[in-house]
């Protein structure tokens, strides 16, 4: 009986304590709109700060200014003006799969290009070392390698292309206008079909399972430039995106 009374007292104390204790910051009590907005901005800044403290390259997508910037350690290396920015969520049979409200507060990592950029390293076998013969003695030397191609000659650029991040977020880059792409009609057709199939697969839960896709439209030259120069394993931080 005494033990039962003791248990009752403990339970009652715990319950009273739970009711009376002030709520910890950021818990159940909803923020007013102004506080919620500043909280989102602070979370975004924290993510940006963590990326800037690392050694990897990252992209900073500023929804307010509509710009995409390639950054390293907080320093802007190249900035592209966007002509439009959208963000989307997959839906199946008109049912959306909405992510958590604060999905954009995190920093995203390990971005890789889709379709992948193909870099063809030229392989060159060194000629055997000449032994005693003078260079102009008429010995047959292999011809020197051809001068390497410029980036514009080396890489053709699909439109749109995507940068897919490990956190199931992707950034789709669309080109406005023509120019600088160096891509054949056949490859463009293949790109379009493969993108549509990939979209269907994502939407019905097959293959890659993106939860959010950001879509940015750049000038064709800028889109091509970004595709050709994007470093591997790039990060992403999104700032200024309004709540959906």
């Amino acid at each position: 009986m005494r033990a039962r009374m003791l248990m009752f007292c403990i339970a009652a104390t715990v319950a009273l304590g739970a009711i009376a204790a002030p709520a910890p910051p950021g818990s159940s009590q909803p923020d007013d709109p102004d506080t919620a907005r500043i909280r989102r901005e602070v979370e975004g800044l924290r993510s940006e700060h963590s990326l800037a403290a690392g050694k990897g390259f990252y992209l900073r997508l500023d929804a307010g200014r509509q710009s995409l910037t390639l950054m390293l350690q907080g320093v802007s290396l190249d900035e592209y003006a966007a002509h439009g920015l959208e963000w989307g969520i997959p839906e199946v049979v008109f049912v959306d799969r909405r992510p958590a409200a604060d999905w954009d507060a995190a920093a995203f990592s390990k971005g890789r290009l889709e379709p992948e950029r193909e870099r063809d390293h030229l392989h060159f076998l060194a000629p055997p070392p000449a032994t005693g013969a003078s260079p102009d003695s008429g010995a047959a030397l292999p011809s020197p390698p051809p001068p390497p191609k410029s980036a514009e000659e080396s890489y053709s650029v699909p439109s749109p292309y995507r940068i897919a991040f490990a956190e199931r977020v992707s950034l789709e880059v669309r080109a406005r206008g023509e120019g600088g792409r160096n891509r054949s009609v056949f490859r463009r057709l293949a790109d379009a079909v493969s993108l549509r199939l990939s979209d269907l697969g994502t939407a019905i839960g097959l293959g890659a399972t993106e939860r959010v896709r950001l879509r940015v439209t750049l000038d064709a030259e800028d889109a091509a430039s970004l595709y050709r120069s994007l470093p591997p394993d790039v990060g992403l931080v999104v700032v200024g995106l309004p709540a959906r």
Binding site: Q66, L85, P90, E91, L241
Partner: peptide
């Protein structure tokens, strides 16, 4: 049918903010 009509992506435009912000 799902592919053509009922599956895909629902996109929403993001307006530039600039001075208002």
């Amino acid at each position: 049918f799902l592919g053509l009509a009922g599956t895909g992506w629902d996109f929403e435009g993001v307006p530039a903010v600039g001075a208002e912000m």
